[in-house]
Nucleic acid binder design. Structure first.
Lengths: 243, 243
DNA sequence: CGAAGCATTGACTGGGGTCAACTTATGTGG
DNA sequence: CCACATAAGTTGACCCCAGTCAATGCTTCG
């Protein structure tokens, strides 16, 4: 037996995502379950990281949504990206890291300390890929804001969310639960809440989305993706392709 | 002597930047000079990385400017960020990395292989900080595109360039050389070339900038910074503060 | 049941895009 | 060294996407 024992697909969505990025061995799986037992609850609206302040030890987001935000002196707010179950928080490669953005809980959260990559080498691969994906989300966000119109921005964002949530097994048939208000979507997409509302109205009329508070359905994700030229994220040859 | 010998301030701008991020020892300095001797020239407009293709071994940009770009199916182009002397190219933490954006030379470049952090531990700190700064530039870019008007976008970009170039010693008195066309600035800031031209005209009339092809002067960087709420980048407590 | 937050809609405005013409560099070959 | 070609910068006229302002419903939850 030269091959390390792989853990079975995890039941916890957050860990299912990590395993989808790069399989890890049974030892790492045990460490993760153990960490999950020491999970901490974070109430909605609480800040996990504050821009300019030291960064906490690396954590895994077990459940709930969070946002990386920056606020301009005059109050304008931009959300740099959303954090979903299975995402990493506070993984840095520089010494004494300072937070470059504020992370705020959009729902009540569960987070747990991330087993260190040194102790569990089979996790470092998943961590590295997760990190690279994070960067890739930022690039997608830049393209959205810089070169897409309002309709495309919303569609592109929804497709990203669908893709990311599906890695954790949190979607079914193009549908997923979410805690987004139209104001939050506006702060992600660089629009105003009023205009988000108008665009959502159009998307509904087009039959592209069903949006109810807390719940979003993309009726034809594939068609929408090809219409706006959206493509899945790919940051490593070794990352398993989705079907 | 418990302290490692620190190298004197490097003469090459690219290395001066790295040393400014985190001091390294004489051994690393020698390795860098040695790498510089094996520098490669890249002609203008050549691609260093291509989106979706495997990433080359880690390199240091010794001289010249490059851009991280993404092109939408219909030809719209967005520049995610600019690469300046001393910036790192192709440093990834995931296995078998694939490029998430295309990197194209805006001028003739010199690049050299980056001495590995394993062989020269005193460099890993500078690499880590450089990596964190890169992310921080992406966040700045997102805020620019999402929540700033055209005037602020240009001012913010110019201040970022001034700050970054000054770390390599490539500025004097708010002035620096650059290879930017108004079309390139437009692709960075998410505007059209025509509108960039109009905004530059206003900035000239305001006395904020002197822009000639190849050369940019910010007449009062400090005042401009406080007017638009710009702040220097800070990603590590251990990173030396600028004066 | 009241209050606060969120969603929705209309009327109007304006920043930035589009189109097109023209001027000014840059440069390349004869 | 000039002639021509091409790229880059400049300007005006006009338009439209998205912002602003404001009023009105609709939930949700204490």
């Amino acid at each position: 037996m030269s091959q390390a024992t792989l853990a079975p697909p995890p039941a916890i969505p957050a860990f299912r995502r990590l395993a989808a990025l790069a399989p890890f061995d049974a030892r790492a799986d045990i460490a993760l379950r153990d960490a999950a037992r020491r999970a901490r609850r974070i109430p909605i609206r609480q800040e996990l990281l504050s821009e300019g302040k030291p960064v906490m030890d690396p954590q895994i987001l077990l459940s709930g949504w969070a946002a990386r935000t920056r606020i301009l002196p005059d109050g304008r707010r931009q959300i740099m990206g959303l954090l979903l179950p299975g995402d990493l928080i506070g993984h840095c490669y520089q010494p004494e890291p300072l937070a470059t953005s504020t992370i705020v809980a959009l729902t009540d959260l569960e987070i747990c300390p991330a087993p260190s990559a040194e102790d569990f080498p089979s996790l470092s691969c998943a961590y590295g890929i997760s990190h690279a994906l994070d960067e890739s989300f930022l690039l997608a966000q830049i393209t959205r804001l810089g070169r897409m119109n309002a309709y495309e921005r919303l569609a592109d964002l929804f497709l990203e969310l669908l893709e990311r949530l599906s890695m954790a097994g949190l979607t079914s048939e193009g549908a997923f639960d979410h805690p987004l208000t139209q104001e939050l979507v506006a702060d992600v997409t660089g629009l105003t809440p009023v205009h988000v509302n108008r665009v959502v109205k159009t998307m509904r009329q087009d039959g592209e989305v069903l949006w109810a508070t807390g719940y979003l359905v993309l009726t034809a994700p594939g068609a929408l993706a090809s219409r706006i030229g959206w493509a899945p994220f790919r940051v490593s040859l070794s990352m398993p392709q989705r079907q």
